[in-house]
Design a protein around this nucleic acid. Structure first.
Lengths: 150, 150
DNA sequence: TGATAATTGATGCATATGCATCATACCGAC
DNA sequence: GTCGGTATGATGCATATGCATCAATTATCA
């Protein structure tokens, strides 16, 4: 049997992070395709949806919920603000809040149909029960990672 | 009970893509921290590891294995090439191959220790058996997404 | 063989991602 | 009230991500 001279490098098991990132990329592609007609990415959809869910969250609180770096969120909000989908409070010196505008609500509502289609297709194939377990596992990974890194 | 006027937007279940991306970000942070001393990110580690595993893969083949867009991989390789960790064949007109250089092998070997630590910490907390199931599910999501999107 | 299709690499564009850093504002201890 | 620590937002930097597009090359088939 042929052996590479780097074989000792590949005896370790699959990288958990890499496996997650691969799945994340593959599924992101699927959802982005579904949302293309709604003129937003799944990332933007996710941000809008979290804002809708939270009401008028502080930026930091929103970043935590999204498991995003602060600065990543701040800049992700800019195109949404430019399109008039979200509005930032500029309370001087205090934590800013972000809220959906009516246009943002309309955009989110319209995109939700496309999103629901992608979600149904994927989870219909994957299996709802299996997905429930996966979802719980993913949430646990987030919690664990927070504890292990911070 | 207080109701937001956007309540009808948030009745849908959790977004599978968003859940994956959150976990991906959280775990990426963990692994990037662990690899910081090795002067590479988990993405770069992942690319190097796949090259080691494949030998001298064609760029396209490598991108598929990594579930990456072609162009993302091409550009991810540039800093690795500049550091002398990988070498690209420039066979005129034909598919290029990429291979680890001795320096690349050394860097990968050195980083593998740090990686193994992060992996052990995370999976030790998460549970090896549960992780095996998660890993199988992630692979299935990749396969399903490929089928559903292409 | 010659036209056409598929593959591959490269680049422009836009956004995503997170770290380090800075400035400001807030808060708690004293 | 002041000082020091913390929280928050902003920005520079580097890389990640993927789409659209173009050029060149290879494969296919009539």
């Amino acid at each position: 049997m042929h052996m590479h001279h780097t074989d000792e490098l590949i005896l370790d098991p699959i990288c958990a992070c890499t496996a997650l990132r691969k799945a994340s990329r593959a599924v992101t592609r699927l959802y982005d395709e579904a949302l293309a007609g709604s003129f937003m990415s799944i990332v933007q959809f996710s941000v809008l949806r979290h804002i809708a869910r939270e009401g008028q969250p502080e930026l930091m609180r929103l970043a935590e919920k999204l498991v995003m770096d602060r600065t990543t969120l701040y800049r992700a909000l800019k195109p949404l603000e430019q399109r008039g989908w979200v509005a930032l409070s500029d309370a001087a010196g205090r934590a800013k809040h972000v809220a959906l505008t009516p246009a943002g609500e309309a955009a989110l509502r319209a995109a939700t149909d496309a999103w629901r289609g992608a979600q149904a297709r994927l989870l219909g194939s994957y299996g709802a029960a299996e997905w429930a377990r996966m979802q719980a596992g993913l949430a646990r990974l987030v919690a664990l990672s927070g504890g292990l890194s911070a």
